[in-house]
């Protein structure tokens, strides 16, 4: 059989595969009927076979290149993105994340660093106005004083509460995600962001606690504090894990170690984003409301209990149980 005859006989199948590829590309995500699927698979297999035997068939280079592109294109339509494995999210968030964090040394380290620096910084700012001045800068300090010079109570109604929630969501979550992403730079970026946020927030706390507006300040920050500060630590710890995986590879190549760490880091970042969201809702609605301080304190205590339950209670419970099928297995990043 001459090459020209062979190409002639195959051409109509190749063209049909091309057309079906175009149709699937435009259809993007909608369901395909069963017979169309089997037909596509048969055409794809045939094109694969033709490509595999191209050398034996003496196909010219231009045709081989065409087949490479055709098979690649069809391959991408046959094996499509699995999008989001929504059903696995619950197990990931409430079993795997607490379990991993319970045993995770970066999280403990991040917690220790954040709270250590925070407390140190707030004590120093409390005792010496000079320190607060150096850390925060004159403008920021004046803005803080100005912000809390009026009583908090009744500052907001429903609509401004929504605006505030929107603002805090975007602002704080963006800081958290930044914290995580920069952890990639050998963990130093996350470490820097952690220490930076801890010292600035600590200085602001210490300074305001010693100032004349301490009552207003705590009236505002108490309720959402636990969620927000924990979320920052969580995001930074996830980033540090990415970075440290490049240093301590555990016997893998650096790229593979990074991929493994990333698989585990993503769900804890998702948990951090959820915490930021909760904090933003509280910060938008409860914190600026006229509710008495006792209510806000109760909210803070309740959120602390929830956090302890999540990290310690759920963590302990699942720490020694077997792995649940993780996102990394079916829909995530192959460990190799």
């Amino acid at each position: 059989m001459k090459v020209s005859e062979l190409i002639q006989s195959r051409q109509k199948h190749w063209r049909e595969l091309e057309q079906r590829c175009s149709a699937l590309e435009n259809l993007s995500g909608r369901r395909v009927r069963a017979e169309a699927g089997t037909r596509f698979a048969a055409l794809y297999r045939a094109a694969c076979a033709d490509l595999a035997l191209a050398d034996a068939y003496h196909l010219p280079p231009a045709t081989v290149q065409y087949l490479h592109q055709l098979v690649g294109r069809a391959h991408n339509q046959l094996y499509r993105t699995r999008a989001f494995a929504v059903r696995k999210w619950y197990g990931e968030l409430f079993i795997n994340v607490p379990r991993r964090l319970y045993r995770d040394r970066s999280f403990r380290l991040a917690l220790a660093i954040f709270w250590g620096v925070f407390i140190l910084s707030s004590l120093m700012a409390f005792s010496s106005p000079d320190y607060a001045d150096r850390i925060l800068g004159q403008d920021f300090m004046e803005a803080l004083e100005e912000m809390y010079s009026q009583p908090v109570a009744g500052r907001s109604d429903g609509a401004t509460g929504m605006l505030a929630t929107g603002f805090y969501t975007i602002h704080n979550t963006s800081i958290g995600l930044r914290c995580f992403a920069f952890g990639l730079v050998f963990g130093i970026g996350g470490l820097f962001a952690l220490v930076f946020n801890a010292s600035v927030l600590g200085a602001a706390f210490g300074h305001m606690a010693g100032g004349p507006h301490a009552g207003n300040f705590f009236h505002f920050v108490t309720a959402h504090g636990p969620f927000e500060l924990t979320a920052i630590v969580l995001a930074a710890a996830a980033g540090m894990r990415l970075g440290f995986s490049l240093v301590d590879t555990g016997g893998y190549t650096r790229a593979a170690a990074l991929r493994r760490a990333a698989t585990e880091a993503v769900p804890s970042v998702a948990a951090a984003v959820l915490l930021f969201l909760l904090a933003a809702v509280i910060e938008g609605f409860l914190s600026p409301s006229a509710a008495p301080y006792a209510v806000k304190l109760a909210a803070a205590v309740a959120s602390c209990i929830l956090l302890v339950f999540y990290f310690v209670g759920l963590g302990r419970r699942h720490a020694f149980a077997g792995e649940t099928p993780s996102l990394g297995g079916a829909a995530g990043i192959p460990p190799g």
């Binding site: 989001f84 995580f180 992403a181 990639l184």
Partner: peptide, 16 residues
């Protein structure tokens, strides 16, 4: 084909 998690992660890390 990539998974949803890979898609999200590579775009969060875009900032770096």
């Amino acid at each position: 084909a990539i998974g949803g998690m890979q898609a999200v992660l590579r775009n969060v890390l875009r900032i770096v």
